[in-house]
Structures are given as structure tokens and as C-alpha cells.
Amino acid sequence: MNSMKLSLLFLSASLFSGASLCAADFKLTADNTTVKFIGSKKDGKHEGSFKKLTGKFSVSGDVTKAKLEVTIAIDSMVTDATKLTAHLKSPDFFDAKRFAEAKFVSKSIQAGTNGYLVSGDLTLHGVTHPLSFPARIDLADGGVTVSSQFELNRHEWGISYGKGNVNDLVKMSIDVKAK
């Protein structure tokens, strides 16, 4: 009987300590998180990313109860062409002086057959619009890795200049490796 009590005590202690270990706020920075985009047109494409971002991935063991929040400094954008970077930051596209930040706040993370579906609100270019994207999320070795590729329609955030010349859909790629 005593050994059974001891076992139960040990089991509950293990579960409790396990849950404590899994509950964590992973701080996201440009060092452990990359947000890339590829814009395209009829005769080519260009890749860009952001050098400054902050955020956190809060998780307590169960990924579907996790919360993801990322704020990106639009001014920190870099692309494979300097003059394109200046053009993208101008009022033609991101309008970085008026809308200095983009922010994503997750509302739900649902388990799917091939990873998770992250849903939330993306505020970009002064417009807040729902965004859902598939992601592979792994909690291992005391850290979290997130990997996602998806497309978003720039017009949904009011970035509409150059319609017909620049494709509406922008390929996004997100990678997080945080501890």
C-alpha cells in the first residue's frame, strides 16, 4: 500500500514537473526567427526579409493551446536589390513611414494531418485582416521550432499599387528556432 502511495506521489510529481518544464515563453528575435517573402511579376521575382522583429511563442506543453505573437519593424526590410527595398518601403507598397510595424497575433492553433493550422490577425499597412497558415511546430530539447510556407494576397491588406504588373500573391516563409 505504501509503495502504491509512493508510486502515485512520484507519478504526480513527475507530471507536475513535466508540465512546468513545458510551460515556457520563447522570446522571438531576428536571431532565432526569419520572416522571408518572395514577390513576383511576369518576368522575375525578388526575395526579401526583415532584420528586426520581436515576439514570443507561449506554450504549456500542448501546442494547440500555444500563443504566437510577432511584431516586425517594416523599416528593417532588406531585399536582393537596394533600389527595390526603397521602392517597397515607399507609399507604393508598405508605406513604412506611416505604418512602421506589422503584427501577427494568433487566435488558435489547430492540429492537422500534416502539422498545425495557425490562425490569427495580421496587422499590416494599417489593415487588420485574418490570416491562417499551415505550420510544422515541434517542441524538443527545451526549445521550439516552427516552419511554414504559405501565400498571402497583398490586396487584402490594401497594398494594391502595381496591380497587373506585380503578382497579387506573395510567398511567405517563416522559420523559428528558439530556446
Binding site: 533600389k83 521602392h87 515607399s90 507604393d92 499599387y161 502595381g162
Partner: peptide
């Protein structure tokens, strides 16, 4: 024309 030239060199096609 001068306004358009200065603005395109500032990388704003919209302006």
C-alpha cells in the same frame, strides 16, 4: 515634369 522626375528618383512611382 520636374516634380515627376524628382519623385521617381525618390523611388515612388505612385507619387
Amino acid at each position: 515634369i520636374a516634380a515627376a522626375t524628382v519623385l521617381i528618383h525618390a523611388h515612388s512611382a505612385r507619387f
